[in-house]
């Protein structure tokens, strides 16, 4: 079969050429580009400004191109601060929360206490003991009467938290306090199991019987 162009004199008349593009006719010239109109300079300037904005935008929202950052506007450090990496970090993060809720009113956010009223936790010889046996008891049942911390005498009362805080809360906040590097503390963590043992062992003391310093000093710091 041949598809050669037929002449218009064949038996089928060509359709009327009302639509010049739907019938092959004299071919218009192939398209070309003019030279009169260039890229306007203001467009280049605005494009440059937009590129600058784009770099700022990516810098602010792109998380430094780190594959670990998923939330726009965060950096890797923010993610690491928010997302704990190990079990101790989980306790630490939780402990910070518990401390800010229950402890920082008296012992202050910086852990230095209030001179003459509330003893410090930062660098405290009661906190940085080898084991946490005494401070677990303090947090559970509170404390009353004179106590000497780092050679300075305090005489006040601390509330018991036995009913308010779970074993895990207490372990977390004590881990946070003992291991708080910002305060210069560097003592080992406290586990919820340790808290549970002491909570059960001291349940017989009766609710709301605060400890005294003399009483605590008879208890070994470590099992």
């Amino acid at each position: 079969m041949s598809l050669e162009p037929r002449s218009t004199t064949s038996s089928h008349p060509a359709p009327p050429a009302t639509v010049p593009d739907l019938v092959p006719g004299p071919e218009p010239a192939e398209p070309r580009t003019g030279t009169a109109f260039y890229t306007p300079i203001w467009l280049v300037a605005v494009f440059g400004a937009a590129l600058y904005w784009a770099t700022l935008y990516v810098d602010r929202h792109g998380g430094g191109f780190n594959p670990m950052v998923f939330t726009p506007g965060e950096l890797l450090a923010d993610v690491e601060a928010r997302v704990p990496r190990s079990e101790a970090d989980v306790l630490l993060a939780k402990g910070r929360q518990v401390y800010n809720t229950y402890c920082s009113a008296c012992h202050q956010p910086n852990g230095r206490g209030t001179p003459g009223q509330f003893p410090p936790l930062a660098g405290s010889d009661w906190v940085l003991t080898e084991g946490p046996n005494r401070i677990i008891r303090i947090v559970l049942d509170g404390m009353q009467g004179p106590i000497t911390v780092n050679g300075v005498e305090f005489n006040n009362a601390m509330l018991p938290w036995r009913e308010q805080l779970t074993d895990e809360d207490i372990a977390a906040v004590l881990t946070f306090i003992r291991g708080n590097k910002d305060w210069g503390n560097n003592a080992g963590p406290v586990s919820p199991a340790q808290v549970k043992v002491i909570r059960d062992a001291t349940a017989a003391r009766g609710t709301f019987t605060p400890w005294t310093a003399a009483e605590l000093l008879t208890i070994p710091v470590k099992d």
Binding site: L43, A54, Y57, G62, G63, F70
Partner: peptide, 22 residues
């Protein structure tokens, strides 16, 4: 998705406006 993917795409998406304008 990692934040850089979305932010690069958003910035690039806005910049395509210049091509459309041309």
């Amino acid at each position: 998705f990692p934040a850089w993917m979305s932010s690069v795409a958003a910035a690039a998406g806005v910049l395509t406006l210049f091509g459309v304008y041309a």
